[in-house]
Design a protein around this nucleic acid. Structure first.
Lengths: 113, 113
DNA sequence: CTCCTTGCTACCATTTCAGTAGCAAAATCT
DNA sequence: AGATTTTGCTACTGAAATGGTAGCAAGGAG
């Protein structure tokens, strides 16, 4: 990883019907394709663009790039020169609230069989 | 709400690159448009189809219908005659893990300003 | 210089979603 | 009973998001 280059483009559009309440904005953000997955893949360590792309099973770079831009604008991840994309402090807080889902999902999977 | 009618169609396709691990399947499900929002709107009480549609800010009925079908197949919600769509026991467990996000989102919103 | 890696853009085919109209069945009214 | 309203849901079309591939510009290595 080499270029910390261009800063996040500002002006993220708020889609749909978020009434402006933070929880709605958050659900809206997390509900976008690949966002949860990206956070999940960054749980252990920073990954660079192509590592992240591979970890997400070959997500197309254009989509990955726009998701990363959105997550950077919202201060959930950051791009560290020579390290790659990493969760910020906020991002780690958010992820910590998501990790119980991994446990629950096991139980859920059993119910589905 | 009147017709408990046709049962959920089986055979939900697993999109993208879920490796089959339950947590991946879950993140994939939750990452679909409107899913988190639907769960959120059902947090207090069952809602019928049109109430839910209104609560989600006018989501188109075709999309709502397919999301509801998916959530029913995965046993997260159910359609109760004379009550409407409601979280199942599993669904309530899932939602309870999501509610801390509402608190966190307030803090997050302050950081964004 | 050449070769490789990396972040990212461009382009187009495919899928998904939005938005509206409206139907069939059940409930409600008269 | 007949008429009207409500409700779950489908159909259809245009718009938007995504998938998939190719490849560029810049930095590093040799």
């Amino acid at each position: 990883m080499t270029k910390p280059q261009n800063p996040p483009r500002s002006g993220r559009r708020v889609r749909g019907s978020t009434t402006g309440r933070p929880v709605m904005v958050l659900l809206d953000l997390l509900g976008r394709r690949w966002v949860l997955r990206i956070l999940w893949e960054l749980r252990d360590r920073p990954l660079n663009f192509r590592e992240l792309q591979a970890a997400c099973g070959g997500i197309s770079p254009s989509v990955l790039n726009s998701r990363l831009a959105e997550l950077r604008e919202t201060l959930i991840i950051e791009l560290l020169p020579d390290e790659g994309y990493a969760l910020t402090k906020l991002g780690r807080e958010l992820l910590s609230q998501l990790t119980p889902l991994a446990v629950w999902s096991e139980k859920w999977a059993k119910s589905l069989k």
